[in-house]
Design a protein around this nucleic acid. Structure first.
Length: 217
DNA sequence: TAGTAGCT
DNA sequence: GGAG
C-alpha cells in the first residue's frame, strides 16, 4: 500500500513551518526499494563512472559525481551547465533506471507535484569529509519544477537556508532512505551538506549517496 | 562562492 | 579538535 503524505507527515517534525509550502521531508520513503536502487546506481556508475569535477574557480569538488537521464549536471572551468553527453566517456549518460523514475515521481506526487517528469538525475557520492557548500540549484530552465533529493547510506546534516546566501540556515539531520522535495517559494533556497562523518552503513559501506532529480530541460 | 581558510 |  502506497503511503500517503499524511502517513509520512504524521511521523516527523513539522517541516512545513520552517521550510515553507512546496517542501516535504519524506522520511524513509526510499527504503522499500533500497536493494534495487543500489543495484541500479552501480549499473549507472559502471557505464559513467564517478568523477571529481572542477568548479569554474579551479577547485576540485570533494563530492564525486555522475549522472543518468537525458541530461547531466556538469561543472568545469567553463562553468555549471547541463549536458546531454558525458564529457568523460564521450557518449550519452546512462538511461534513468525505472526504479529511480518511479521513486522520484512518487516523492514529487506526495509533495504536491503530481506531473513531475525528471530528465536529469545527478548522483553524488560522499566519502568522509566530503561536503557541498551552500549553493542554489539554478541551472534548470523552469523553476516551477521541484527538486527531489534522495539520501542513501551514511547520515548527513542538510543545510537549508533562504534566498540569499547570508540568510540563516536550519540544519536537518538526514538518514538512509529519506527523500527531501522542495519547490515553489523554496525552489531557489540556498542549501548544502556538512562534511560527512566517518561511518559504515549496511547498504553503502563507508559512503553516502544522493540522487538529485530535476527537470532541467 | 556546488571552495577554502581562518577565526571563535 | 569539532562545530558554527
Amino acid at each position: 500500500m502506497t503511503p500517503t503524505l499524511f502517513d509520512h507527515l504524521e511521523q516527523q517534525e513539522p517541516l512545513s513551518k520552517e521550510l515553507g509550502p512546496g517542501t516535504a521531508l519524506l522520511r524513509g520513503l526510499a527504503q522499500d526499494h533500497e536493494a534495487l536502487i543500489m543495484e541500479a546506481l552501480f549499473a549507472v556508475a559502471a557505464e559513467s563512472p564517478f568523477r571529481h569535477m572542477v568548479t569554474p574557480g579551479g577547485f576540485r569538488m570533494s563530492v564525486a559525481m555522475t549522472n543518468c537521464g537525458a541530461l547531466g549536471w556538469v561543472t568545469d572551468s567553463k562553468g555549471y551547465r547541463y549536458a546531454s553527453m558525458d564529457p568523460e566517456t564521450g557518449g550519452p549518460w546512462p538511461a534513468m533506471p525505472k526504479v529511480f523514475m518511479d521513486l522520484a515521481q512518487q516523492a514529487a506526487t506526495l509533495a504536491g507535484y503530481p506531473t513531475f517528469i525528471p530528465d536529469a538525475c545527478l548522483i553524488n557520492r560522499y566519502e568522509p569529509g566530503a561536503r557541498l557548500t551552500l549553493h542554489q540549484d539554478k541551472n534548470e530552465n523552469d523553476f516551477a519544477e521541484p527538486i527531489v533529493s534522495v539520501s542513501l547510506g551514511l547520515p548527513a546534516v542538510f543545510l537549508f537556508g533562504g534566498l540569499e546566501r547570508s540568510d540563516k540556515t536550519i540544519r536537518l539531520p538526514i538518514v538512509h532512505g529519506d527523500v527531501l522535495v522542495w519547490g515553489g517559494p523554496a525552489r531557489l533556497c540556498y542549501h548544502g551538506i556538512n562534511p560527512l562523518k566517518k561511518g559504515s552503513h549496511p547498504a553503502t559501506g563507508g559512503y553516502r549517496f544522493n540522487l538529485t532529480f530535476r527537470k532541467a530541460g
